[in-house]
Design a protein around this nucleic acid. Structure first.
Lengths: 126, 126, 126, 126
DNA sequence: GTGGTCTAGACCACA
DNA sequence: GTGGTCTAGACCACG
């Protein structure tokens, strides 16, 4: 299952973002083992060095921890993961708002439309 | 200026989506001429036939009008364009909400965070 | 302006039919000169011999008359032309009825639909 | 079995018309499988892409339904087929009337001649 | 120049 | 096998 990457950004950061999203969405849970560098390389169709660089950068941020001879694991630092999640959410919100503004919708419009969308097919789990 | 496309969707629909976004954002205004099929082809780095198909599909939807020997133009049917804009907005909202849900945020959380974001760096034009 | 012919029938008869239609429709009137064999050949994109054969066959039927050194002319025998016209009309009617039957319409249906069509956009010159 | 097409109209529309006629005449019944794109292509002597376009256009109109990996099938929507049949009939009638008018026959004449033709070789199923 | 059509041949996803 | 997409390159009609 290969992947398509943008030219405007380093591929290793794009790969990193994909992993971070998976972690934040709970597809990869704290303590889970990431695929080996080689496996990931095959899966996304890039050079193992590129994957290696993604893992290194994530480790620098504390998102993952590498144990020599065992592999790379999602951090168990739940606070850090929570921060990560909030950062991702904040980012998505900003991108979304910006995009809606470009379509000519005011903040007020946006709030109304979201409200409407949520009530349309909403899980009222309160 | 070549472009990167997803494998999961036909290129011609992706090209169409890009044009529709530009139109909805006002980058291309009613009556504006789209680039010629051949020019667009070299710009996005695909075969002219693929661009042609995008234009054809947009004309079928009424988004653009083609005049033989002259070119392809954004429709001046403002109602249709308004519908298009609303459809695009609705779509973006749904994608956004879905993505936020995947991050584990409830509808209530989302509303709060958006509210916060909007007031942070908001246009207080009142 | 070249032409497209069926494989199932000799080209010269098809050309003849076209001329007869023109004559019956009054596009070519009694006494009118037909184009020269060479001109017709260029116009429809076939060999002059083929045109020549069409003219010969029409002369055999008395539809046209050839005057050496002058050209080929539509007959002035109005009775014969009238017969021709009726024959053509009868033929068209039969083909039409057959085609409608194939679509599953009874004679009664056909009469009704024609009546309707004629009254829709009809010139009531009575 | 190759075919002859007019220059005045795209081949793919002519192919479409032929299929629609076959369907309306009951030669192809609801649910029947159309020949594969490739088979049709060799049968009528055109490029598979041209056939594909015909099929695509027919699907857009709802006349046929395509199932990936299985083939293209005549729709089972009988109402739609009935509409199609009526549309075809209306079209044939208009062409016929126009052609007869060109031969110099008034509406009244046409009605009489048709009546005569129908009674000549008529199905007296009463 | 413009868009529209067609061919030749390729690869893909689905079943 | 099926239809769906894409490329490369050609020719056409229109203005």
């Amino acid at each position: 299952m290969s992947h398509t990457f943008q030219h405007s950004q380093p591929i290793y950061t794009q790969i990193m973002d994909i992993f971070i999203q998976r972690i934040c969405r709970g597809e990869l849970r704290p303590g889970d083992k990431l695929p080996s560098v080689r496996d990931s390389a095959v899966e996304v169709g890039v050079n193992p060095n590129t994957i290696q660089r993604s893992y290194m950068e994530m480790e620098r941020r504390g998102v993952v921890e590498t144990k020599r001879g065992q592999g790379t694991f999602v951090t168990t630092d739940i606070e850090l993961l929570e921060h990560l999640r909030q950062e991702l959410a904040r980012n998505q919100i900003l991108l979304f708002l910006q995009s809606m503004k470009q379509l000519g919708y005011s903040s007020h419009d946006i709030m109304n439309m979201i409200n409407c969308s949520m009530h349309t097919k909403e899980d009222t789990k309160s």
